[in-house]
Design a protein around this nucleic acid. Structure first.
Lengths: 137, 137
DNA sequence: TCCACTTTGACCGAGAGCTTCACGGGCGCA
DNA sequence: TGCGCCCGTGAAGCTCTCGGTCAAAGTGGA
């Protein structure tokens, strides 16, 4: 199970935009691409998806750009993954074989607990510098 | 992030073998493939990986077959994913861009918490029938 | 009107995942 | 010893997604 580069890019870009939140400044694609080291042409797609997912808003034309649609505290890691990946943990729903149902059920539990876990991480936590603090269960 | 079919197969097959644990019976590929609805030729590869990963043992020749290497209580979901997928959550280690480090750090935390979560599910839980019980945080 | 920027959509190469096939090789039993 | 069973191994298609590119159209401000 690997974390897609796309989600990584999205997180980085959103983190950058979170720092701009509160000011009137809008984020521009070229600037985001340069600062966060993301291929600009690919970033376009990602921003479009984030916009369709309701996480950011855009303004066209000259003086245009992107901004968060909500406060950073109200955007969670779960939201981001959900918009980009579609599902936090996509499970084979076939449930074939003698043990199929039970296995599916267990994975569904894992997913549920993962969702709760991911909703803990809000975007404002991304905007801070790396810390030494440990995680708590 | 989607759960690979391979892990699903591995879980089902191991669940089946957990039910055989304690008896002298060995599991046969053809039988496993039929009961758990897994392509037999593919299953061979999966079983080989599980064997190399130390989760099961095999015996060749007539009267041959597969059996768990340890008690079901001592095999966790984490072990299975680890053997099959290599890593529970593979993270882009580049940490590029202004927010790269912080984002990587957060994902590392998520992974650590996921590991703890997955170690909670031992193989003996797979061998039971589906239940209505809810999960607890 | 012109320019800067966003928006849309089609396209593609590479690689991973799933599956199948073919054949080699140890083991037990007659 | 030889036969049949079953594991072991490698390779080879096939499909699908992912990461990334390119071109053109829409939109609003100066």
């Amino acid at each position: 199970m690997k974390l897609s580069v796309k989600v990584d890019y999205a997180c980085r870009v959103l983190a950058r935009m979170a720092r701009l939140h509160g000011t009137d400044a809008l984020a521009h694609i070229e600037e985001l691409a340069r600062i966060e080291v993301v291929p600009a042409n690919y970033l376009v797609q990602i921003l479009t998806e984030l916009r369709n997912g309701g996480l950011i808003t855009s303004r066209r034309g000259k003086q245009g750009g992107y901004a968060l649609a909500r406060a950073p505290q109200e955007i969670t890691l779960y939201d981001i993954v959900r918009v980009i990946e579609g599902d936090l943990l996509e499970i084979n729903m076939a449930s074939e074989g003698q043990s199929g149902r039970r296995v599916s059920q267990i994975w569904a539990e894992v997913r549920a607990r993962m969702e709760i876990l991911c909703k803990d991480y809000t975007l404002d936590k991304f905007a801070t510098k790396p810390t030494d603090e440990m995680y708590y269960i």
